[in-house]
Design a protein around this nucleic acid. Structure first.
Length: 677
DNA sequence: GCGCAGGCTATTTTT
DNA sequence: TAGCCTGCGC
């Protein structure tokens, strides 16, 4: 008898199970998986097994003898990348770990780490997240903002740092110059164009002198690296035999250019997988045009369509098809279901207001979950905008229905985490101004002004003495001088801080201790304890988080890898999602893309809420088409039951009576059943 | 530098 | 309605 002990985790050496591709895939999937076209576009409808197709493709390539390290798999989210690589490993065995996979940003980061010097950066550059970016922007707006001579009421019109950031970022991602975006989207800012130009200019300079890149820079610099350095470009082009891209409909300009360059080798094939009907990120620079123009951009491209839907019952699929039919421009495709008819037609539920809408959801969930058929995890409540979920959260809480909400804040962006990480960042990149400022303002009686001056002096000092992270090792205390003529309140702290840096980075320490994120996090947390205690009320919880951070640090990972990971991963990626079976999911539709549930409620289907009022008022056809795709994404998440709710009164600070959404009135009556409450 | 009161503004959000 | 930012006074 074989008896297996549970204690030791079994060595997961996956034995390579050679798949019988034609049997395990449907005909359309198989055609795509086994494509030999140089350029292929796979249009994979919702629920048609897109991920399956892509993972089998990678496995198939490996079976055909393509070395795994010559395959590049690009995704948009870390989650998607992790899932796919995991599945590929199951299919193709351990060799699959050699596949280059990841998000565009992480692949760009990997290339830039190797070649940073070619672009004038030092290796060990910092990645600024959106939080750091706005901190830098804010201080630049203070410095170069509205001219002092301007009257007060005019000054008020000067854009906030966040507006300038998003303007710039949109331009970067859409491949436009920011001036054009400004004229197009914020024409009223024309009068400030010189100040904004100064801010944007100095933003670039300050990043450069901080040896830091923001998220956009990762893409743009990777692009620049390949464009300006033919030998680097050719290296990568020789390396990659297959470039595979997921969610292609949401690619933006620099991403598309990166794809073209990376797949530009003479013997490289490109396969892009996507669904034009699910393109929902144009507002951050994605362009559905890339998928529409694929054949134009890659002459001779082969198009594959995958149209069998395994997810939804036919009644739901009919609603989906009808929903997307409202859009004029698309790759013609008709999804058909392989599932049996369900017991209920999709429900349209008119309700007096948001509060009753919430009540309905809570009551209906209560009924559904009582049965054996559904548990909390089978149910999702989806909405256009986060604030649509406020009433629901209260109603669920009152009804004692546990839920999880996929909300905004990333783990790394929580204040206390950033406090700790700032010290690590400075260790790796002493030029990191954002981190340095963050550290010194933690000390009492030190504010933004002092911080800025000190940061400036610090940089000058590094330049004069030509110091970098390795020459500083163990010699931070010698750099007291940056304090010249500074706030005396800071002096003892500054010394104390430098001493801490020396103790963290001392050459006397064992390498395993010095470069070990986990050890460092523990030491820093201890040092910061008094500060944390006096600044955060919910200290216990926060200390928990810091421990998490500590535990999440792979003790083997070197410090700069750890920091890059921290910046590139979000909270949802990190915590392998609490898999409590009883939790109902609340999510924005955007975040729900790619997921599925047995029961889906879509909230706030009133004209003005969804589609959003702004789109309706401006008569913005392109915007409306994207809203329609968003609605399509929402309904195609449902497997068995679908509830489409609309409150007649919108509630909130500017409540008003709304007609039902045009998405509802546009549906053939016989496809849905109206529930009158 | 810091804390508080009142004013203003309101999609979607990955990396 | 709520959360964020600004400006003012100490």
């Amino acid at each position: 008898m074989k008896y297996q002990l549970n204690g030791e985790p079994q060595q997961q050496s996956v034995t390579h199970r050679r798949s019988n591709y034609a049997d395990e895939l449907n005909a359309q999937q198989y055609a795509a998986v086994s494509s030999i076209a140089k350029h292929a576009l796979v249009i994979a409808g919702a629920g048609s097994g897109k991920t399956r197709t892509l993972t089998y493709r990678v496995s198939w390539l490996i079976d055909q003898g393509v070395p795994a390290w010559r395959i590049l798999l690009l995704t948009f989210t870390n989650k998607a990348s992790r899932e796919m690589l995991g599945r590929v490993k199951e299919l193709a065995g351990d060799e699959a770990t050699q596949v280059w996979g990841g998000t565009f940003h992480s692949v760009a980061n990997r290339m830039l780490r190797r070649h940073a010097e070619l672009l004038g950066y030092q290796s060990g550059f910092t990645i600024l997240d959106s939080d750091d970016q706005s901190a830098m922007m804010r201080s630049l707006v203070k410095q170069f903002g509205p001219p002092a001579s301007l009257q007060k009421d005019k000054k008020k019109l000067f854009p906030k740092a966040s507006i300038i950031s998003s303007l710039l970022s949109y331009a970067n991602n859409a491949g436009l110059v920011w001036q054009d975006v400004l004229y197009e989207r914020y024409p009223q800012l024309d009068i400030f164009i010189d100040e904004i130009a100064a801010i944007i200019d100095n933003y670039a300079k300050r990043k450069m002198s901080s040896n830091a890149m923001d998220f956009d820079d990762l893409l743009l610099n990777a692009l620049r690296l390949l464009e300006e350095h033919p030998s680097v470009r050719e290296d990568y082009q020789r390396r990659f035999a297959h470039v595979l891209v997921d969610e292609y409909q949401d690619s933006n300009k620099p991403q598309e250019q990166l794809i073209t360059l990376l797949a530009g080798g003479p013997n490289c094939s490109l396969m892009a997988v996507g669904d034009d009907a699910q393109s929902i990120y144009s507002w951050r620079g994605a362009s559905v045009e890339h998928i529409f123009r694929f054949e134009e951009n890659y002459p001779g491209a082969q198009i594959y369509k995958i149209e069998t839907n395994y997810r939804s019952v036919p009644a739901i699929l009919q609603v989906s098809n009808a929903a997307i039919a409202l859009n004029s421009r698309q790759y013609a495709k008709e999804l058909h279901s392989v599932r049996e008819e369900g017991s209920l037609l999709p429900a349209v539920v008119p309700l007096p207001d948001k509060r009753t809408e919430a009540l309905f959801v809570a009551q209906r969930i209560d009924e559904l979950v009582d049965g054996v058929q559904f548990r909390g995890k089978d149910i999702a409540i989806l909405y256009r905008a986060h604030f649509h979920s406020m009433d629901i959260q209260m109603a669920l809480t009152r009804a004692h229905i546990p839920f999880r909400i996929t909300s905004g804040l990333r783990f790394f962006e929580q204040a206390h985490v950033k406090d700790v990480v700032a010290l690590l960042r400075l260790l790796v990149n002493p030029r990191d101004q954002v981190a340095l400022r963050r550290i010194i303002v933690m000390y009492p009686r030190v504010g933004a002004l002092t911080a800025q001056k000190l940061a400036d002096n610090w940089l000058t000092q590094l330049d004069e003495q030509n110091l970098n992270s390795s020459s500083l090792r163990g010699h931070f205390v010698e750099q007291m001088g940056a304090l010249k003529g500074q706030n005396s309140a800071l002096k003892p702290h500054w010394q104390e801080f430098l001493a801490l840096m020396d103790s963290l980075d001392s050459p006397d320490l064992e390498e395993s201790e010095r470069n070990n994120p986990s050890e460092l996090v523990a030491k820093i947390t201890e040092y910061l304890m008094p500060y944390l205690r006096s600044n955060y009320e919910d200290l216990a919880e926060r200390v928990e988080d810091l421990k998490h951070l500590h535990e999440a640090s792979p003790s083997g990972a070197v410090l700069d890898d750890f920091l890059a990971d921290m910046a590139l991963l979000s909270e949802m990626d990190k915590q392998n999602v609490q898999d409590d079976d009883e939790l109902v999911t609340l999510s924005s539709i955007h975040q729900a893309k790619g997921l599925e549930w047995k029961v889906v409620f879509v909230l706030s289907l009133s004209d003005g809420l969804f589609p959003h009022r702004r789109v309706l008022e401006q008569g913005d056809i392109v915007g409306l088409e994207e809203e329609t795709r968003l609605f399509y994404v929402a309904v195609t998440r449902a497997q068995d039951q679908l509830y489409l709710l609309y409150p007649r009164y919108s509630g909130g600070y500017d409540g008003q009576y709304c007609p039902p959404s045009r998405f509802l009135t546009g549906l053939p009556k016989e496809l849905v059943e109206v529930w009158e409450c």
